[in-house]
């Protein structure tokens, strides 16, 4: 299991780095999928099997396919805009420094936070499996579930309104 965590964590980090550094949109999508894979493995290591599957299907499948469709649709093969500095003065420098500061801060929290000292709880053998998860989702948490359905419907309608009709 040690190996799984290390490999999966490195995969996730490498995917994010790829998104930051890659020049072509397609490469970015691929490295994102890479990162999602790593995360799914991490979920597995946390005994969340259902969530790992959902991660692969929804993120790695549906959402990334959506990205690819958009890229294909717009033929935005190359990320074109990074050549000039843009409207911000020193955007990269500022972005890296602020992001780096955030990284340092959060890493300190993650490594030395009190909450992180928590020990893993004893859980039954079927923890995070489809049946147990589904039972929880559809009994205790059925209201958020219904709200989710509503949100998705709103999103669908919103997208149709935004791009469904061709406006000059």
């Amino acid at each position: 299991m040690n190996v799984v965590f290390i490999v999966a964590g490195l995969m996730a980090i490498a995917g994010v780095l790829g998104v930051i550094l890659a020049k072509q949109p397609v490469y970015q999508v691929i490295s994102t999928v890479f990162s999602f894979l790593g995360l799914a493995a991490l979920y597995l290591s946390l005994q969340s099997e259902f969530l790992a599957v959902i991660q692969l299907i929804v993120y790695g499948g549906a959402i990334m396919i959506l990205f690819l469709f958009v890229i294909a649709l717009l033929s935005a093969r190359k990320d074109p805009v990074e050549k000039d500095v843009g409207q911000l003065t020193r955007p990269k420098l500022l972005g890296y420094s602020v992001g780096g500061a955030l990284l340092v801060m959060l890493a300190i929290v993650g490594l030395f936070g009190h909450e992180g000292r928590l020990d893993w709880a004893q859980v039954p053998a079927d923890f995070g499996q489809v049946k147990a998860f589904g039972y929880q989702l559809l009994t205790t948490n059925v209201f958020p579930f219904e709200v989710l359905a509503f949100i998705l419907m709103v999103a669908v309608i919103g997208v149709m309104i935004l791009v469904g009709r061709h406006r000059a």
């Binding site: 980090i13 994010v16 998104v19 930051i20 949109p25 972005g95 602020v98 990284l103 929290v109 000292r117």
Partner: peptide, 24 residues
């Protein structure tokens, strides 16, 4: 658990950098 929290923090901060430095 600390390892997971730290990994999450790293991912979050790198994602933030991505938001800040990419213009696409």
């Amino acid at each position: 658990l600390n390892a997971y929290v730290a990994l999450s923090a790293v991912l979050f901060a790198l994602g933030g950098i991505g938001v800040l430095v990419r213009r696409s």
